[in-house]
Simulated scan of single mutants.
Amino acid sequence: MKGVDNTWSTERLKIAFDRFLSENGRLPTAPEVDRTDYLPSSRQIQRRFGGLKALRELLGYEVTDFGSGASRSGIATRGNLRAKAAERELEQELAQLFGEPFVHSEKYYGPGRNRADFIVYTMDGHFGIDVFTTETKHDLQKNVALKIDKYLDFPKSVRLFFVVVSQNLSEDEVQLACKGMVKIAKLPELEIVTPKGLFDEVRSLTPYIEPIGFVSIYDAV
């Protein structure tokens, strides 16, 4: 049985729900919330937030009503699948530019258990990447605000890119949506870009030389 825990901030809840989404390909139902040890109880969620639907909306998920079969079977997974596909494609592009040994995925940073999607090492300095999908300016701003809190322990001397994968938002629209966000000042090295914007920024960095005899996982038999 879960104990009472009054320390559930929106940041902590978003991280926990994102973990469930990553592990299961969808957001949890109320019974699954109660069975998952790293989530609060559904009763706590009902008392503090007015129920799961209200909490999903607060956390910025595009699908908040999971009452229909269509939502349960497909809609909730599409954003996650797009994000995973984007991460894989981005990893391969980064490996081609900077060498596979120097592109580290799911890299821990800071004193806690937070991880960046990628840390890339170059002769001109390192940089971190967090990739996420969104289709509206409102959801983009919500995601950025939550992720800024997650990255407060990220090394201040290392460039950090939030890479926005979107079918609807252009590079200019992403920049415009984030321009007035005061919270961005908490991360002085943060840049919010699309994948194209990322490569425009990092393509000129000098890669390290790969070890002699290194065989890429993409080429291994």
Rank of each mutant, 00 (worst) to 15 (best):
G112M: 10
P195I: 01
E171M: 08
H104Q: 15
L187Q: 03
I75V: 12
T29P: 04
R115N: 07
K2P: 01
E91G: 10
E32I: 03
E106D: 09
S71F: 08
V182W: 15
N168P: 02
L140E: 05
L190I: 03
K156Y: 14
Q46L: 15
L160S: 03
L58H: 12
S204Y: 09
E191I: 04
P211Y: 07
R115H: 04
R47K: 13
K196P: 01
V202D: 00
D149H: 11
R47G: 01
E171C: 07
A86P: 03
L39E: 00
V33R: 04
Y109E: 01
V4S: 13
F102E: 06
L176N: 08
E62F: 04
L58Y: 02
I119K: 03
K186Y: 14
N168A: 14
E87A: 06
R43E: 09
A145V: 10
K53D: 09
G25S: 05
E171K: 11
T122P: 08
P211M: 00
V33H: 07
L27A: 02
T64Y: 05
L152D: 03
P188L: 02
R78W: 11
E93H: 12
A30W: 07
E189A: 12
W8P: 02
E189K: 15
V202H: 06
L205D: 02
R115Y: 06
L198W: 07
K2S: 09
G3R: 10
F118M: 05
G50F: 06
E189P: 08
K150M: 04
L21W: 08
Q96R: 12
V33E: 05
F118G: 05
N6G: 10
K156H: 14
L13Y: 02
Y218C: 07
E210N: 05
G74K: 06
E23M: 11
K183S: 09
E173C: 08
V164N: 03
Q175F: 08
G128T: 00
R43A: 13
F199W: 00
D34P: 06
A185D: 13
F161D: 05
S42V: 02
F17Y: 05
I15V: 14
I184W: 06
L59F: 05
G74M: 10
E89W: 08
E201L: 11
Q92D: 11
E62K: 10
L205H: 02
A177V: 06
Y121F: 15
I217G: 08
R88Q: 12
Y218E: 13
S166D: 01
R159I: 01
N6M: 13
T134S: 01
K53V: 10
D139P: 04
K156C: 06
Q44L: 11
K142M: 12
E189D: 09
V4T: 14
D37M: 09
L94T: 01
I209F: 13
T133Q: 07
P111Q: 09
G125F: 07
T136H: 02
I184Q: 07
N80W: 15
T133F: 04
P101F: 02
Q92I: 11
A95V: 03
Y61Q: 04
R78F: 13
E91N: 11
S42G: 05
R72K: 15
K147I: 05
R19I: 10
I129E: 01
P155M: 02
K183G: 02
G74Q: 09
H138P: 06
I217R: 13
K196M: 12
G180A: 08
L152V: 12
L187H: 03
L13N: 04
K84A: 13
A185C: 14
G197E: 00
